[in-house]
């Protein structure tokens, strides 16, 4: 029983291991809620293993081995943790599913966009897949999605004058 527990634990950490860095000192909680018990604290710059996410929370494992929940926005991932071999693995994965034919790892580069010949037939094909609103609403409901009122952020709307720095205003 104990051995099974450990092998399950190992399996899940292998499947979800994703490194991150904590950007500010924060409490570590035992559940993804603000009123959950604080089981420790995490200092800025701590390297953590991201294990799962729920709502605005992220389950992390500290270098000490202690696990718990912190806010998602307290963590940044760092460049270079996923190599091109992972990207390649994705291509192979998709190719092997038989859904798509991968002609090479050549991507959609700036040059390819600049040198492309317009493909009108493909635009027509894209339009042919368009949904209608009654259908979109019905399928959303069938998948338990409920529309709610959420006010827009007033300062997320750009002013009309080019060059005005909304970002600076927001930072104030």
């Amino acid at each position: 029983m104990t051995r099974m527990f450990y092998s399950l634990l190992l399996l899940s950490s292998l499947a979800l291991a994703e490194p991150g860095t904590v950007i500010r000192k924060t409490d570590l909680r035992d559940k993804p809620f603000l009123d959950a018990a604080v089981v420790g604290n995490v200092s800025s710059n701590t390297q953590v293993d991201i294990q799962s996410r729920k709502g605005a929370w992220m389950q992390v494992k500290l270098p000490s081995g202690q696990a718990g929940w912190i806010k998602l926005l307290n963590v940044r991932t760092s460049s270079g943790t996923t190599s091109s071999s992972t990207a390649l693995a994705n291509v192979i994965k998709t190719g092997s599913s038989g859904k798509t034919v991968t002609t090479g790892v050549k991507g959609l580069s700036a040059e390819e966009i600049q040198n492309a010949r317009p493909n009108l037939a493909e635009v027509a094909k894209m339009s042919s897949y368009a949904a209608n609103s009654a259908d979109a609403q019905k399928t959303a409901q069938a998948n338990q999605l409920i529309a709610v009122q959420v006010p827009a952020f007033a300062n997320s709307t750009p002013t009309t004058a080019p060059g005005s720095n909304i970002y600076q205003e927001r930072r104030r």
Binding site: E112, P118, T139, L145
Partner: peptide
């Protein structure tokens, strides 16, 4: 037309329809 000339749609009608359902919603 130009962008699709650089890379065509993925040949999977199920995925294309699904993305349209979610996108329109």
């Amino acid at each position: 037309a130009n962008l699709l000339g650089a890379a065509p749609l993925m040949n999977d009608a199920k995925v294309q329809r699904y993305v349209n359902q979610v996108g329109l919603w």
